Simulated scan of single mutants.
Amino acid sequence: MEIRTKFYELLSHCIPPTVILKTITEGVVSQVDKTLKAEIMHWAVLYEV
């Protein structure tokens, strides 16, 4: 519920969803193993559209 609240707060302050997704993706990619990076980027791009 905390994450949902933070998403709604960002959206209510007119932060575009694409910016939110890009920021989260960059943060996750920087913390995972090299083998997962391509798959994470694939799904991020798929949902960005």
Score class of each variant (00 low, 15 high):
T5N: 13
P17T: 02
V32G: 10
D33Y: 09
C14A: 15
V49E: 02
G27S: 13
V29N: 03
L11W: 00
H13C: 14
K37Q: 07
S30G: 10
K34M: 10
T35V: 12
T23Y: 01
Q31R: 15
V32T: 11
V19I: 07
H42I: 02
L11P: 01
W43T: 05
H42T: 01
E9M: 09
A38K: 06
P17G: 02
L11R: 06
L46Q: 11
I40V: 10
Y8H: 13
A38M: 09
L11D: 03
K22A: 07
E26C: 11
I20P: 01
M41P: 03
P17K: 02
E26P: 02
T25E: 04
S30M: 10
M41W: 01
H13E: 15
I20S: 01
G27I: 11
I40N: 07
T25R: 00
G27H: 11
I40R: 06
H42R: 05
K37S: 06
W43P: 02
E48T: 05
M41Y: 02
V49P: 03
L46K: 09
A38H: 05
M41L: 15
T23N: 04
K34S: 12
S30V: 08
M41R: 13
G27L: 12
I24W: 04
M1Q: 14
P16T: 05
M41I: 13
K22T: 05
G27A: 12
M41V: 13
I24F: 10
T35D: 14
I40L: 11
I20V: 09
Q31K: 15
I40D: 08
G27V: 10
H13N: 15
K37P: 00
E2T: 15
T18M: 08
L36S: 05
K22C: 02
L36Q: 06
V45L: 09
A44Y: 00
P16I: 03
E39F: 08
L10T: 04
R4H: 15
L21E: 03
I24G: 09
I3P: 14
F7T: 01
T18C: 11
K22V: 01
K34E: 14
K22Y: 00
R4C: 13
F7M: 07
S12T: 14
W43R: 04
V19L: 04
E2I: 15
T23W: 03
Y47L: 05
L46D: 11
M41D: 11
T35Q: 15
R4F: 15
V32Y: 06
T23R: 04
K34W: 07
E48I: 05
I20Q: 03
K37R: 10
S12I: 10
K6D: 10
T18L: 08
D33S: 13
T5F: 08
E39N: 12
E39W: 06
E2A: 15
I20K: 00
E48A: 13
V19P: 00
E2W: 14
K37T: 08
Q31S: 14
V29R: 02
P16Y: 01
V32D: 09
V29L: 01
W43L: 07
L46N: 13
E26Q: 12
V28C: 06
W43G: 03
K22R: 07
L11C: 09
